[in-house]
């Protein structure tokens, strides 16, 4: 119904989760690093997405308030970058590289295998809230093509045959090295997962 105008005047019925005080505190801790509060935008969105799983309308408003900006400025940034989700994600996000090297080495087949196994397409989440899937341009690991990222963890030279094992592995997103929690959610914050 392309002749009908979408209503943007009214707020959505469900604005989603907001940011806790601990998350806000964590965001404020970035302020001394920059000349302006606005520069904390990307770190703030990273921390928020870690904490609640995606960037909800409510979270955008909270961040706008923290950074002293109109909420539209936050929406502008959120929609520009592909990393931020504006709807809930699953516990594990499978990110498949679709750029040239990976494609030449079989990323298509991998993508197809994931889509059929999980029954979801780009930017969708399985009904049980376990997995989400997305494609991304070159992940700068072309020597290990085709690449698949599971949350933070990069899996290299992934073949469709390895997929079952990888999906079953609970630790498929655990990093082998010590982590910095600078951009993470504050301890104890559990992201809201699934739909």
């Amino acid at each position: 119904m392309s002749w009908q105008a979408i209503d943007r005047k009214s707020a959505p019925a469900d604005e989603g989760p907001g940011l806790s005080d601990a998350v806000k505190e964590k965001i404020r801790a970035f302020f001394p690093r920059y000349e302006t509060k606005r520069a904390v935008m990307l770190p703030a969105l990273h921390v928020a997405q870690e904490a609640i799983g995606y960037i909800s309308v409510r979270a955008m408003k909270d961040i706008a308030e923290l950074l002293e900006l109109p909420p539209s400025a936050v929406m502008d940034v959120v929609t520009f970058y592909t990393h931020y989700w504006t709807h809930p994600r699953g516990e594990k996000v499978l990110m498949v590289c679709r750029s040239l090297s990976c494609q030449l080495m079989g990323a298509d087949k991998l993508q197809h295998a994931i889509e059929t196994k999980l029954g979801i397409k780009d930017h969708e989440t399985t009904p049980d809230g376990k997995f989400s899937f997305m494609t991304e341009e070159c992940l700068a690991a072309c020597d290990h093509a085709p690449c698949l990222m599971v949350n933070e963890r990069m899996h290299k030279r992934v073949t469709p045959e390895q997929l079952d094992k990888l999906l079953a592995d609970a630790d498929s997103d655990k990093l082998p090295m010590p982590r910095s929690d600078l951009y993470d959610a504050p301890h104890g914050e559990k992201p809201a997962r699934g739909h």
């Binding site: 302006t36 606005r38 520069a39 904390v40 935008m41 990307l42 770190p43 969105l45 990273h46 950074l67 400025a73 502008d76 940034v77 520009f80 970058y81 592909t82 990393h83 931020y84 991304e136 341009e137 600078l182 951009y183």
Partner: peptide, 25 residues
């Protein structure tokens, strides 16, 4: 360290600067 969020054009030097300032790149 300032972490980006998925935009090729933020590698362009002024896009990078805008992104660092908390704007679209």
């Amino acid at each position: 360290i300032h972490r980006g969020a998925g935009a090729y054009v933020c590698g362009e030097e002024t896009g990078l600067i805008e992104s660092l300032e908390g704007k679209r790149g």
